[in-house]
């Protein structure tokens, strides 16, 4: 350790004195109502009460939990005994499922599946869709208070929650598909220090 680091360590070992009670109460008076806007919860000085409540609730829930786990495993294992060994090649309707085409179809939205295969498998037509209609809906705006920008300047942060809706329509089959996607945007409004 060089001499400068030693000096640094010595200085760090000195602790500034905490503010006096008189000074703290002066600040409290000056703050007024602003001092009681943000409060924190203190730990309960008598935690035994909570602990006894907690242990009695644990005693109630443990047997129920074990029973639920047993039922879950039984429900998984019993059907597997009843199924035929080679069931994987059959679909739920009893017909054999053909392997999908490995030829790439550029018009298809799914990799490894051609448009016609997609049409057959899904029962939804691929051609004949109108242009999708989109709209955004503002759900709520939240004031998240003051944050520090990377530059150190304070800014007020607002968070907007949107739902983006896209509606596809297929007139020939009278089919409509509505997709909703949640989205958030954050805005920072710069503030003057004082």
């Amino acid at each position: 350790m060089n001499e400068l680091e030693e000096i640094e360590k010595e200085l760090t070992g000195l602790t500034p004195r905490s503010p006096s009670k008189d000074f703290s109460s002066r600040v409290e008076n000056a703050l007024g109502e602003a001092g009681s806007v943000a409060m924190k919860h203190l730990p309960d000085p008598n935690p035994n009460h909570d602990r006894s409540q907690l242990s009695s609730s644990i005693r109630f829930w443990i047997p129920l939990g074990i029973a639920a786990i047993l039922v879950f495993f039984l429900s998984i294992s019993i059907p597997s005994f009843l199924e035929p060994e080679d069931s994987s090649i059959f679909s739920s309707t009893g017909f054999a499922v053909q392997p999908l085409s490995m030829v790439e179809d550029e018009d298809s939205p799914l990799h490894g599946v051609t448009s016609s295969e997609l049409e057959d498998l899904s029962g939804v037509p691929v051609e004949g869709w109108l242009d999708p209609k989109t709209q955004e809906r503002l759900i709520r705006k939240i004031d998240e208070g003051i944050v520090d920008r990377a530059t150190g300047l304070p800014a007020r942060q607002y968070r907007y929650h949107f739902i983006d809706e896209t509606l596809w329509t297929h007139p020939a089959t009278e089919t409509r598909i509505l997709s909703t996607t949640p989205r958030q945007e954050v805005y920072l409004i710069d503030l003057e220090l004082y």
Binding site: T15, P16, R17, S18, P19, F23, S24, V27, E28, L31, G35, S36, A38, M39, K40, H41, L42, P43, D44, P45, N46
Partner: peptide, 22 residues
């Protein structure tokens, strides 16, 4: 029992001495 304390008091107890020094 639900006890509360203003947050500024904890904040000030932690930083007050350093602020005074500065």
């Amino acid at each position: 029992m639900n006890l509360t304390e203003p947050i500024w008091k904890t904040w000030f107890a932690k930083h007050g001495g350093k602020l005074l020094l500065f």
